[in-house]
Computed example of a mutant assay.
Amino acid sequence: MPSTSTTVTYLFDPLCGWCYAAAPALQYLQGVDGVDVALAPTGLFAGPGARPMDAQFAAYAWANDQRIQQLTGQPFTQAYRDHILGAANGRFDSGPATLALTAVAHTAPGRELDALHALQRARYVDGRDTTDAAVLADVLNTLGLADAAAMVLAPDAGLHSAMAARVANAQATLQAVGARGVPQLVVAGQGEALRLLSGDALLGPREQLVALVRAAAAD
Rank of each mutant, 00 (worst) to 15 (best):
A188Q: 14
A176Y: 06
A150E: 07
A40W: 04
L99F: 00
Q175E: 14
R195Y: 08
R166A: 15
R123D: 02
V152C: 09
G47W: 05
A97G: 09
T77P: 02
A61W: 09
P183I: 07
A148H: 04
G17I: 13
V186F: 03
F12C: 13
P48G: 02
R195C: 06
L143Y: 00
S161F: 03
V152M: 08
S3N: 10
M163E: 10
D132P: 01
R67E: 05
L119P: 03
S161K: 14
R81S: 10
W62Q: 10
D129I: 02
R111Q: 15
P96V: 13
L203F: 12
T131I: 08
L15T: 12
L159F: 00
A38W: 05
A59T: 11
P52Y: 11
A211W: 07
G204R: 15
V35Q: 00
A97Y: 11
D82Y: 04
A148I: 06
G189P: 01
T131G: 13
D114G: 01
A193L: 01
F92R: 12
L202N: 13
T9M: 12
A133I: 04
A63S: 10
A154N: 08
W62H: 06
A216P: 03
L136G: 05
R91K: 12
T102N: 06
R51W: 02
L26W: 08
D147T: 10
A154T: 10
D65P: 09
T4W: 02
N169W: 01
C16H: 07
A211Y: 10
N141S: 06
A23H: 12
G47K: 03
A216G: 07
V135Y: 09
L140F: 01
A134I: 11
Q56A: 14
V152A: 13
Q27C: 09
Q56R: 14
G204H: 15
A149M: 10
V213L: 00
Q69R: 14
T102I: 04
N141M: 03
Q74F: 00
D54K: 02
G31T: 15
L203R: 04
G204E: 15
A115L: 04
F45W: 09
A170I: 02
T77D: 14
M151Y: 05
D132L: 04
G158F: 07
G181M: 11
H83D: 09
T72H: 09
L194D: 07
F57V: 14
L15H: 15
F76T: 05
G191M: 00
S3G: 11
D126Y: 13
A157K: 03
Y60V: 07
Q27T: 12
N141I: 08
Y80E: 13
E112H: 15
D129N: 13
D13T: 14
N141E: 09
Q70K: 13
G86A: 10
A201H: 14
A100I: 01
A22H: 04
L196D: 03
L39V: 06
L85P: 08
V32R: 11
L101Y: 00
L85C: 11
D13C: 07
A172S: 04
A172H: 04
A22K: 07
Y80K: 12
A176W: 02
V125M: 08
P155T: 05
G47Q: 03
A88P: 10
L99G: 06
S5Y: 00
L185F: 06
L99P: 02
A105P: 11
R180Q: 15
G17S: 10
T130K: 06
A58T: 11
G17D: 13
D33L: 00
A201L: 14
Q171R: 12
A97V: 05
P155N: 03
